[in-house]
Amino acid sequence: RELRDAFREFDTNGDGRISVGELRAALKALLGERLSQREVDEILQDVDLNGDGLVDFEEFVRMMS
């Protein structure tokens, strides 16, 4: 339940997936600093298991585990 709530916080447009822009904004909020595009792309590449360029809830749960 906590992970579902956190996912909703990251998924600002409510489409059920976290985009690169949403991921960048969430990481900035969490870390208090802006990451480079390359750093965000590397994180997305590690987390995006199905290669669609987005983070779905299952991928998010794995990222947070």
Rank of each mutant, 00 (worst) to 15 (best):
L23T: 11
M64W: 14
D41E: 09
L23P: 01
D5V: 06
F60G: 04
V55K: 01
M63Y: 08
R8E: 11
D41R: 07
I18W: 01
R34S: 11
N50W: 01
E9K: 15
V20L: 14
L44Q: 12
L35F: 05
G32T: 02
F7P: 00
D48I: 14
E58M: 06
M63H: 13
F57S: 15
L27N: 14
V61E: 12
M63E: 01
I43Q: 14
L35Q: 13
R62T: 06
V20F: 12
D56P: 12
G51F: 04
S19P: 03
R1G: 05
A6S: 11
G16M: 03
L31E: 14
D41P: 05
D5Y: 02
L54P: 04
E42G: 09
V61G: 11
M64I: 11
L44V: 12
M63F: 09
V20Y: 13
V61P: 02
D56H: 11
N13W: 00
F60V: 04
V55G: 00
L23N: 05
I43K: 13
D11K: 00
A29Q: 10
D5T: 13
D46M: 03
G14A: 01
E22S: 02
R8P: 01
G16R: 03
L30K: 15
R34C: 13
N50R: 11
L30V: 10
R8T: 13
E58K: 14
R8I: 07
E58Y: 03
A26C: 15
G51C: 09
V40E: 15
R62I: 05
G51N: 14
A26T: 04
R8H: 00
Q45V: 08
S19H: 02
I43T: 14
L23G: 06
T12H: 13
E58V: 08
S19I: 02
R34M: 05
D52G: 09
L3S: 02
E59W: 05
E2V: 03
L35Y: 12
R1V: 09
R38V: 11
E59K: 09
R34K: 15
N13A: 02
N13M: 00
R1T: 11
V61S: 15
L30P: 07
E9G: 11
E58L: 11
A29G: 07
G32H: 10
L27M: 11
R17D: 03
D56N: 11
V61L: 11
G16K: 06
E59F: 07
R38D: 14
R17P: 01
A26I: 00
E2W: 03
A25P: 11
T12I: 04
L35G: 14
R1C: 05
E22V: 02
M63K: 02
R17T: 05
G14D: 06
F60E: 01
I43F: 04
T12M: 03
F60I: 15
A29K: 14
D41A: 07
R8C: 07
R34G: 13
A25R: 13
L30C: 13
T12Q: 07
V61Y: 11
I18M: 14
M63I: 12
E59A: 09
R17C: 15
D5Q: 11
I18P: 00
L30R: 14
R4D: 10
A29V: 04
N13S: 01
K28S: 11
D46H: 03
L3A: 04
S65P: 06
V47S: 08
R38W: 08
D46A: 05
R1M: 15
R4G: 05
S19Y: 00
G16S: 05
E9C: 04
R4M: 07
R4C: 05
V40H: 13
G32E: 02
R62D: 14
D56W: 02
D5C: 06
A29E: 08
E2K: 07
T12E: 09
V61K: 10
A6K: 15
D48V: 14
L54Y: 06
M64F: 14
D5N: 10
R8Q: 08
G32M: 01
D56A: 12
V47A: 07
R4P: 00
R1E: 15
R62V: 09
R62E: 04
L35P: 11
E59I: 10
D11Y: 01
D11W: 01
N50G: 14
L44G: 11
S36T: 12
A26F: 10
V61I: 07
Q37C: 02
K28Q: 04
I18S: 01
L35K: 15
E42T: 03
M63W: 11
S36Q: 13
D5L: 04
M63R: 03
E2M: 02
F7L: 02
A25L: 15
L31G: 14
G53Q: 14
R38I: 13
D46G: 08
L3Y: 07
N50P: 06
L31H: 11
E59D: 03
R1Q: 07
N50Y: 03
G53E: 06
S19A: 03
G51Q: 11
D52S: 07
G21F: 14
V61D: 12
I18V: 10
S36L: 12
R38Q: 05
I43A: 15
D15N: 11
E2R: 08
D15Y: 10
R17V: 07
T12P: 01
F60D: 01
D11L: 00
E59S: 09
L27G: 15
L44F: 13
V20M: 14
G14V: 01
V40L: 15
A25H: 11
A26D: 03
D5P: 01
D52P: 07
S19Q: 01
L3Q: 12
G53H: 12
D56C: 04
E42R: 09
R8F: 01
V55H: 03
N13K: 01
I18F: 01
D5R: 08
S19N: 13
V61Q: 10
A6T: 15
Q37L: 11
L27I: 14
L31D: 06
E9F: 04
L23M: 12
V61C: 11
D46N: 06
T12S: 10
S19R: 01
R34W: 01
M64H: 14
F7R: 00
V20A: 04
I18Q: 13
M64L: 11
M63N: 13
D48M: 13
V61A: 10
T12G: 10
L49S: 15
G21W: 03
D52Q: 08
N50I: 02
L54D: 05
E33S: 10
V40P: 10
G53W: 03
G51I: 07
G32D: 04
R62S: 09
T12C: 07
G14S: 06
R17E: 04
L31M: 15
V61F: 07
S19G: 10
G51A: 13
D56G: 10
L3D: 02
V47D: 05
R17Q: 06
L49M: 05
V40T: 06
Q45P: 07
R1N: 14
F10N: 06
A6D: 01
N50V: 05
M63P: 01
E2S: 03
E2P: 05
L54C: 05
Q37E: 13
D41G: 06
L31P: 13
E33C: 12
G51S: 15
A26P: 05
L23F: 05
R1L: 04
V47H: 13
D46F: 04
R4T: 07
G21M: 09
G16W: 02
N13G: 01
L30A: 05
L44M: 05
I43C: 11
L44W: 02
N50E: 06
A25N: 08
G53P: 06
M64A: 15
V20R: 02
E9M: 07
R1K: 15
N13F: 00
V55C: 11
G32W: 04
V47T: 10
G53M: 07
D11R: 00
L44P: 04
E33D: 14
E58G: 11
V40Y: 08
I18N: 00
D5W: 02
A26L: 14
D41I: 06
I43R: 13
S36V: 14
Q37M: 04
D41V: 05
E42W: 06
E58N: 04
V47I: 05
F60W: 11
L44T: 12
G14P: 01
N13P: 00
A26K: 01
G53D: 09
T12R: 06
G21C: 05
L27A: 15
V61H: 12
A6L: 11
D48K: 15
E33V: 07
F7N: 00
G51H: 09
N50D: 15
A25Y: 07
D56T: 12
G16D: 12
Q45F: 04
T12A: 06
